[in-house]
């Protein structure tokens, strides 16, 4: 991707009168980190980047920003929010449009066709992070790590994030401005991780997930980072009735994880953010992808593709499968 063109476009959009601010990515404070950047005017876009490290899904910020009560007489700032999206992020935007979480005229979507992100954990495991700010670039058949002026070429397979291996929509499905030519989609890999768990006996699956869930510290990062978890009043925070207790043990952790995953059934767009941010390394993607697989195979439905479609759980077909019913 041509960074000059990206910055030029970003500056143009950020300078528009009807745009409140633009959300993009910029280099972080050290190592491989990339931080979301907020630009209120053209100046703020000078350092924006799009690299294989831009895993953060910026669509989260569309619903995260608090609408604070205004002093009497003051008008709300109803200008648009511009944001950069990868393929998966754009599906989050589309799904938000489906659910009317946002309206189309509230956002300016800048599409970044995405050749695939690296897995940050894998990257720092294989090429340890240092305090020097490092850069990553795409090459024809992989990634190039630039550290201290030295370039290391790495094959794509070695560092590609799991979610990108399985990605079917690398190009934004919703956009106002496209920054580049669409990339060629690749053949999505078989989701072997999910198949492996499916293949286990019931007890084996229970043991596996108990092992994982027992690590959960219930920080709710997975919920907060999720672009589609945007309820003002989350059922998990409610005290009366208290569906899931706040105490941390097998039972509550499992209930919490079931509730979280279920609320995303037919909505999860597989951006993998929950798994990335989990401080306890719980493979949340394996649950989300399982549900996405069921929704796709059994109901022929894929969320976040068509902003005009009906939400999965708020619609039905008379001939939905019912082989599980007694």
């Amino acid at each position: 991707m041509d960074l000059d063109k990206l910055r030029e476009t970003a500056a143009e959009v950020a300078a528009r009168d009807d745009v409140k601010y633009l959300i993009g990515w910029e280099k972080g404070s050290y190592g491989y980190r990339v931080a979301p950047a907020f630009a209120e005017d053209a100046d703020g876009t000078a350092d924006m980047i799009f690299s294989p490290l831009c895993t953060a899904n910026l669509a989260t910020y569309l619903t995260l920003v608090e609408k604070l009560p205004l002093p009497r007489g003051q008008e709300p700032d109803n200008r648009k929010v511009a944001l950069m999206v990868k393929g998966c992020d754009s599906r989050a935007v589309a799904q938000l449009l489906v659910e009317k979480g946002i309206h189309r005229d509230e956002v300016v979507v800048i599409g970044c066709p995405c050749p695939g992100m690296v897995d940050p954990a894998l990257l720092s495991e294989k090429y340890p992070e240092t305090e020097e700010i490092a850069e990553l670039k795409w090459s024809d058949d992989g990634f190039i790590i630039v550290r201290n002026g030295e370039e290391t070429a790495v094959p794509r397979e070695e560092l590609l994030a799991e979610k990108c291996r399985l990605c079917r929509y690398p190009n934004p499905v919703v956009s106002d401005i496209m920054l580049d030519e669409p990339v060629e989609s690749w053949e999505p890999a078989e989701d072997e991780e999910v198949t492996e768990i499916e293949g286990k006996e019931v007890e084996g699956r229970w043991d596996y997930w108990q092992q994982e869930f027992s690590n959960c510290i219930r920080c709710y990062s997975c919920r907060n980072v999720c672009p589609l978890c945007y309820c003002q009043d989350c059922i998990l925070d409610r005290i009366n009735p208290s569906w899931v207790f706040r105490s941390v043990n097998f039972s509550e952790n499992t209930a919490f994880n079931i509730a979280r995953a279920f609320h995303l059934a037919g909505r999860c767009i597989e951006c993998g953010e929950c798994e990335r941010v989990c401080p306890a390394n719980i493979p949340l993607g394996k649950i989300n992808r399982k549900l996405a697989r069921e929704v796709r195979d059994k109901y022929g439905f894929e969320p976040g593709l068509d902003p005009e479609s009906e939400p999965f759980q708020a619609s039905y077909k008379p001939d939905d499968p019912e082989d599980f019913i007694l």
Partner: peptide, 8 residues
Amino acid sequence: ASCLGCGT
């Protein structure tokens, strides 16, 4: 601005 409000 970029804080997600997660408790990590």
